[in-house]
């Protein structure tokens, strides 16, 4: 969400204008009519917000913060539609303004950032932890069961990344078998592990499964989902892989993947040096 964070301090109205302009510029091929449409939405939002009294604005903002926190526990992207339906209701026209205020509170108090997803998932939001606790999460912060799932997820993301950011499902399951994970076997910790990987992780936005129909038979490809891209980085995943190798490997020894890391960090010049 470009610019969003830096603008928070500014006056609310100005704030939202700027964000809209930046977003409009960001999108390739944005036409002036789209921009006009956006500004019209904005005008309505300002009008709607102006008609609310201070107390109501506070209440709606706080309700929205609470709603986002509660919904995020399921880790399923939260739809704008649902926010309007369950929280804002009759003041849903003021969405952009109330939403911006709620976003600011979530960041200041809870240390989480609200991120809008892209493409097919546009209009859905996820909460991303902004606190940088370093490479090792302190054990006392997250419960064990969650840690186990996070571990499996890291393995999946690593496999995909090391394989060139995409992996066919047959190959994925074949590899997971070496970790004692089989799609048709009940797993001691994860239970129905196929469901966990192909449904839960996908719904949560960690994993994306793309069906390639141009082959016969069609194959499913595993990729990083949008949440994964926001919650972790290629650098962190490569470091994780090196740890699995008992730290016998340095991230830069994986030449291809290291280039990918540098590119993902916008360090194109350094990539050429590696080559």
């Amino acid at each position: 969400m470009p610019g969003g964070q830096y603008l928070i301090q500014l006056d609310l109205l100005f704030d939202i204008w700027l964000i809209l302009i930046i977003r409009a510029k960001d999108r390739d091929g944005t036409t002036s009519s789209q921009a006009a449409g956006a500004s019209q939405t904005m005008n309505q939002a300002v009008k709607a917000a102006a008609s609310m009294d201070r107390g109501e604005m506070e209440r709606k903002t706080n309700d929205l913060v609470q709603y986002l926190l509660i919904m995020d526990q399921k880790k399923i992207p939260i739809k704008k539609q649902d926010i309007n339906k369950h929280v804002l209701k009759d003041v849903s026209k003021a969405f952009p303004i109330i939403f911006e205020k709620a976003t600011e509170r979530l960041s200041k108090i809870f240390g989480v950032e609200v991120v809008e997803l892209q493409d097919k998932l546009k209009g859905s939001y996820i909460l991303v932890n902004k606190l940088d606790v370093g490479e090792h999460n302190p054990a006392e912060i997250w419960p064990d069961e969650e840690n186990a799932k996070t571990g499996l997820l890291m393995v999946l993301l690593s496999l995909i990344f090391m394989n060139g950011n995409v992996m066919e499902d047959t190959q994925m399951w074949h590899t997971l078998k070496k970790f004692g994970i089989e799609q048709d076997h009940h797993h001691e910790v994860f239970g129905d592990v196929k469901k966990l990987i192909t449904q839960e992780f996908v719904r949560q936005g960690y994993i994306e499964i793309v069906r390639q129909t141009n082959t016969d038979p069609p194959v499913n490809e595993f990729k990083w989902g949008q949440r994964a891209k926001h919650e972790t980085t290629k650098r962190k995943v490569l470091t994780f892989v090196c740890q699995i190798y008992n730290n016998d490997m340095e991230p830069r020894q994986w030449t291809l993947q290291w280039q990918d890391v540098l590119r993902s960090e916008g360090r194109q010049d350094d990539v050429e040096q590696v080559i």
Binding site: L69, F110, G111, V112, L131, V133, I141, W142, P143
Partner: peptide
Amino acid sequence: RLFLQAFMSR
């Protein structure tokens, strides 16, 4: 924030 997050998850 970290303290609070731990309470939220546990």
